[in-house]
Amino acid sequence: MKKKIIFFILYLFLTQEVMAKEGMPQLNPEFWLSQIFWLIIFFGVLYFLIHKFFSPKLFSLIDQRADLLRSLISETENNKNQIQKLDNEYNKIIDEAKKNSKEISAKLNDEFNEKISIKKKEFEIYLNAETTKVENDINHFKQQALDNISEIASEFSKELIEKITGTKPNDSNLKVVISEISKKHKESRYV
């Protein structure tokens, strides 16, 4: 088994030597160790610098920025909530004010209507009283006029008779005649 493995490794080396000679310089092991050595050196230096300096510096900055952004976002969120709260309060106040104004308006309207109706009633009463008074006065004056009409008629008749006949008629006789005529006249009017 060992012989086989050794043979296989030798075979690999030989074939690669052949391939290197044929045109694959990568398979020439001459500078393999040297390349590995320098690769370890440069890769190691780079890894060390990235691990110890560049990576922590940039990561701390990225974390710092993320923290800042997070705090700004939370601040914005708080401000947004505050604005929302204020907006809600404002809307609530506006709604309340609208409600109050409606209530006040309705109350004032009722009061006004009530006052108007009272005034109207008062005015109606006053108007009725005045109308009654005026009607009474009119009736009174009418009655007075009717009462005086026989007297006026007797005086007028007296003067007329005096002018026509040239004699003065007896006042008492004249009054009786006129009162009879006026009675007849009234009766004829009511019949």
């Binding site: 001459e30 040297s34 050595f37 320098w38």
Partner: peptide, 9 residues
Amino acid sequence: IDISFTNSS
């Protein structure tokens, strides 16, 4: 061990 500086290095 040869660790010469090469064009690869």
